[in-house]
Every structure is written in structure tokens, then in C-alpha cells.
Design a protein around this nucleic acid. Structure first.
Lengths: 205, 205
DNA sequence: ACGCCTGCTATACGTAGGTATAGTCTGCTT
DNA sequence: AAGCAGACTATACCTACGTATAGCAGGCGT
């Protein structure tokens, strides 16, 4: 059950967009070429310009399509909490594209939304915490979001470490188990953290 | 006390390398141009080729230089544990370059070493853990390394969330506090994790 | 039937940028 | 002094690629 393409998606216009998503995902925005995209879509390079005007605009169309698709998936998946905080699972064919968007720096809207969601989610989780954290919530959410996206962005490297493709069943299983383990076992004890914080106050050197 | 340049580093050859580190860090490998690098270094584009042969080879020289410098810094910083597991602090001028190297996928040796180090470090930390994790250590270390590198790779986005440059004192402070908080407060309780794991076994969907 | 909008192709243009070559200058060896 | 080597520049070349233009086919309203 991979994100089913609407029947209407067989149009050349849609094929171009899909090809662009794939090419940009695989090679990055700069290295992806209109000619290559056109070839994959089975059309002439001219048609790409005809439909989208420019390479930049094509990318924006991809962004929009991804955003819409993600929203749809998000809704139909319901409001279940982000177990393991793992966006890899859902993204399927868009994973690489998203990773590029993030690491090449043109995914700010998406990231901002992740931060917003995370912030709300953390606020809720903080209900039953003895003393509130001394970091502002936005920062904490941002860092957490970045960490959550790490396996997506650095998938190539993580795959090396895991010895399995991140898309494969084995890879997903390994990744999820690792995330569960990491997120349920603190690296630092509260005391260690407190000590480090104290050191921060003392010597801003 | 930023990584002091050796006096001998004033040679054109070294200036080219430094300019390349900067340009590639700022624009990425593809977008960085030999002409731009040459201009920054105050030399002709031809000299770049004279010294390094090709753009690719120039990048490799940068990699090597970064590796050596990092080793030097690593040694002179002693064996103190990676508090907050935060490589951002040290990297200084190389941060952007490293981020590019990671996200553009040509930093495998560096990442592999991080995984090795992390693996050893985790093994030690696992001494006093009631039951061993059910993930293989390499995978866990890889995911953890990726997460640790997230603020570096996604610095642009994290900065947005923090509202401060990651290099600034304020940014460093915020980031470190966030990391301390995150690493000393689990997102999931062991029970939740166990439940999620159980779900994994049950329904591989 | 006629025009025309739309999807589409073929071809051409301009430019950026990696690479290649030839030549200049400086300093050192013999 | 002669001459060689290495650092460095100027210039040229070639390819890749984004963009622009012109033209063709086919369905649709009138």
C-alpha cells in the first residue's frame, strides 16, 4: 500500500512532477537536470518548461505536492502519537526528496511545522515533570525535530551502519528498535546533566 | 583561540585549500566554483588546477586536512567524554564544510569513525544496565551518531527554531541546554517502549 | 468546416564553469 | 652567466544545462 497515484495522475504533467521528485531526491536540486527529468517522464524537455515555467517553479510544485500528500497521509493516519518520532516510515517515495529539501535548506516551512507539532507534543508530555526544563520550549522542539529527522537526512550513512537499506523491512525494524531503545534510555542521568549545567553557569569562558 | 593557522599556511596552496573549505561549506560542492575559490584565495583559477589537479582532488585535499585537524583537536582536547554528544562546539570554521560533507554523502570515513567511537562509548555505558538492548550495537551507535550530528547538518533550520546563530554564545548555550535536557529525560518510558516492541513482533503488517 | 486553444516537440541561444595549454616571472643551482 | 624548476597568469576550449522560440497535431466550440 504505497501512496496510490490518482488515476488522473497519468498525465504528462504529473509524470514530470513525479520524475522531478525522484531526480531531485536522488541527485539533489542542483545536479538534477530538466533534460534528465524529461527523459524519465518520457517527454521532451520543452514540455517541462511549458508546464512549469522554470526549474525553480517545478521544484516549488514538487514541494506543494509533497506538502499536500503529507497532510493527507497525516490525517488518514489519525492523531496517533509519533511513536519513536520516526518520520521515515511514512514518507516512502518522498523520503529522499524530503532529505534533500532539509539538507539543502529549502524545507523551512515543513520543518517549522514539525517544530510546532513537537512543541505542543512536548508541552503535553511535560505535564508530569517535577520541575520544568530550563530551555525554552521552541528550542527544545527544534533540536528534537532535527534529531528526529537525522535518520532521514543521513539515511545513506545510517544505512552503512545498520547494514540494511532504510526502506527494507529489516532496516525499518532495526531503526525502530534503535529509536525505541535510545528514547527510553537516557544517555545522561539527571545528576550528570545538572552538573554539566552548573559548569555552564560557572565558566562561560 | 580558534584553530591557529600555522605560519607556513600563508602559502597560496594553503590559501586555496582554506578558500575551498569555506566555499564548499557555504555553497556545497556542486555550487562552489573553482573561479570563486581562486578569487577568495587571491589567485588565478589556473593555479588551483596547478596545485590540486581537479576540483574533485581539491575536495579530497580538504577532507584530508579536516581529518588531520580534527585528529589534532581531538587529541589535544583529551579523552573527556562527549558531553551532550555535541560535535558542533569544536568544529568552528569547519562546521559548515562538515555538514555539507555529511549531507552530500562523502563523509563516510568520518561517520564510520564516529560510529566506532560511539559504539565503544555505549558499550561502556551499558555496563550497569539490567538487561541488554535488543538492537545490535552498531545500529544503535549509527542512529545515535546521526542524531548527534543533526544540529550540525541541519544548523540552518535549528537556528531558525532557536532564534540564534549556532555559532554565537547564545546559540551554543541554548543548544547545549537543550541537548542536556533531551539526553537526561527519556521521551518514552520503558513500558511504552516494551509495548511498542511487542507490537512490532505481533503485527509485521 | 473553420479557427483556436492546448499539449507537445525540435531546435537554437547564451552562459557558466571545469579543464587544458602556453607562456611569464622569480629564484636557485652549476 | 646560463639555464632549469616551480609558482603563477592569461586565454582558449568544450560541454552541460537552463531558457527561449517557433512550429505541429488534435480535440472542441461555433
Amino acid at each position: 500500500m504505497t501512496t496510490a497515484p490518482d488515476p488522473a495522475d497519468l498525465t504528462a504533467r504529473a509524470r514530470i512532477r513525479d520524475a522531478a521528485l525522484r531526480h531531485i531526491g536522488e541527485h539533489g536540486y542542483e545536479r538534477a537536470t530538466i533534460r534528465g527529468i524529461a527523459e524519465t517522464a518520457g517527454v521532451s524537455p520543452g514540455l517541462v518548461r511549458h508546464h512549469y515555467g522554470s526549474k525553480q517553479a517545478l521544484r516549488e510544485a514538487c514541494d506543494e505536492h509533497l506538502t499536500k500528500t503529507m497532510h493527507r497521509l497525516h490525517e488518514q493516519a489519525g492523531q496517533r502519537p509519533p511513536v519513536g518520532f520516526n518520520p521515515v516510515a511514512v514518507m516512502g517515495p518522498y523520503r529522499r526528496y524530503l532529505a534533500r529539501a532539509l539538507s539543502e535548506g529549502w524545507a523551512t516551512p515543513f520543518f517549522d511545522e514539525m517544530v510546532r507539532v513537537g512543541e505542543r507534543w512536548l508541552a503535553e508530555a511535560d505535564q508530569d515533570r517535577p520541575e520544568p526544563p530550563d530551555v525554552d520550549p521552541r528550542t527544545r522542539a527544534a533540536v528534537l525535530a532535527a534529531m528526529a529527522l537525522a535518520p532521514t537526512v543521513l539515511s545513506q550513512l545510517v544505512e552503512r551502519g545498520m547494514g540494511a537499506a532504510i526502506d527494507s523491512a529489516e532496516g525499518q525494524d532495526k531503526l525502530l528498535r534503535a529509536l525505541l531503545d535510545i528514547h527510553s534510555h537516557s544517555l545522561l542521568t539527571p545528576e550528570e546533566a545538572a552538573r554539566a549545567r552548573a559548569a555552564l553557569e560557572g565558566a562561560p569562558s
